[in-house]
Design a protein around this nucleic acid. Structure first.
Lengths: 234, 234
DNA sequence: TGCGCCACCTTACGATGTATGGCTACCTTA
DNA sequence: TAAGGTAGCCATACATCGTAAGGTGGCGCA
């Protein structure tokens, strides 16, 4: 703060500021004025570097997916020698992309809401597709796999009904024994499942789930299924 | 319009109005003033029936998931005699729930963003879980299956990068031959896939996909995978 | 020296959610 | 029947949002 010589505003600096606000305080906190003050500038000055807010959001998406592409190709290259099963390649890429999404929890919803497909996404599709085709999967099956994979990477990072979606009121309220009993009566299977799955920590919502393990399990299921489909169709 | 005796406002009528606005013009069009004028009333009057806008959105979610629950139990009951494979039961329910989501395209994103889990969702989980357990799936695997299924139903209905997410500018613009060639060079596998999959209609985005078929395929993959997991773990 | 442009700013408009307080018509109760 | 409360609706106002329109200062180049 001592030498607060402010640097010139650029599109990149705007996006960076917006990104850090989104990461720290959530996407709704990203307003033009907020981003501007972060850059020690007035709101209207931003319009010299980006067309409008929608373009700013497009820029955010662009940045996140570029990061996802980077990470997943890096991870895939690093692991390329360890296996020649196409599933491992795709798995590595998917896990890396997911990791990026988890670092920017606002991103999946934003990406899903956009209408134009970023180049970086196209590149990721291409890489995954290439792995599948080289692994002997048909175009048809690979196409379906692509949809399923992108849906998984974007969907599993969002966690519906998680208390991180605002409303800290419910944070750690315990259900009364009465309510627990009533719940158990109305949803016996669910209760039994929770009882079976619950080890140490208690939380009546689905927050007790280990969503990373669940993601990996489902990913494995999907990849094995695609592989099997490929093997039986020829 | 002749006998425009306006009925008294109720929570139900508020939600119904909001719902039809969302269906017709999208979720952003649902503002307090807009809903109010629909009911021939001023915005502030709504607050006598609904705590605030967030509660209104909760109400919308509540309505949609209730509808999904209705449809999926109805469908499951109707088909209950045709098969005793748990997968068919779960499939029927999932497809019915998806159908409801497709009727309210704004719903999946809204549902995903909420923090409290509606009772109707809990009921759907219970029914699906029951089918799985009775089919011999372990609690652990069933739990993972539940996550995967809900992610699919919510995720596949959203279609990232679809032109229905605003921006009608791109609607049906043809790529120049130049661009097509450049694209083919940069993304050879993708181009080959599009060529292989494309039958009659042309559209360079992923809009040419039949997402219903893709959903059913992936659903089948998932169910078979869960079934296989259940069969090998005991 | 002067012209023009570019980055930034000021002001202002219409939209949004909602706090505050007033009005009217009814219902309850003595 | 008169008094008082209350439920439902409305008008006004405020903060915040995206952004259109136009002003201002300093720099580069003629």
């Amino acid at each position: 703060m001592a030498t607060a010589e402010r640097q010139p505003v650029t599109r990149d600096r705007v996006l960076e500021a917006a990104m850090s606000i989104a990461d720290a305080e959530g996407l709704p906190a990203v307003s033009m004025r907020r981003v501007a003050t972060e850059l020690q500038v007035e709101a209207m000055s931003l319009y010299h570097h980006i067309a409008n807010k929608d373009a700013l959001l497009d820029g955010l998406v662009e940045r996140v997916v570029a990061q996802a592409l980077d990470q997943s190709t890096a991870a895939a290259e690093k692991a390329s020698s360890t296996s020649d099963d196409w599933r491992d390649d795709v798995r590595t890429r998917s896990l890396a992309a997911r990791r990026v999404m988890l670092q920017h929890p606002w991103a999946p919803a934003l990406i899903t809401s956009r209408s134009t497909i970023p180049l970086a996404v196209q590149s990721m599709f291409e890489a995954v597709l290439a792995a599948m085709i080289r692994g002997g999967v048909s175009y048809r099956t690979a196409h379906r796999g692509l949809h399923a994979l992108s849906s998984m990477v974007l969907g599993f990072a969002q966690e519906p009904f998680s208390s991180s979606n605002g409303d800290p009121t419910m944070e750690g309220v315990e259900m009364s024994d009465d309510l627990v009993a009533q719940f158990a009566e109305q949803f016996p299977y669910t209760s039994a499942m929770v009882a079976a799955e619950l080890h140490a920590d208690g939380d009546p919502t689905l927050g007790w789930c280990d969503s990373q393990t669940e993601f990996e399990f489902t990913l494995g299921l999907l990849l094995d299924g695609l592989d099997r489909a490929a093997r039986t169709e020829d």
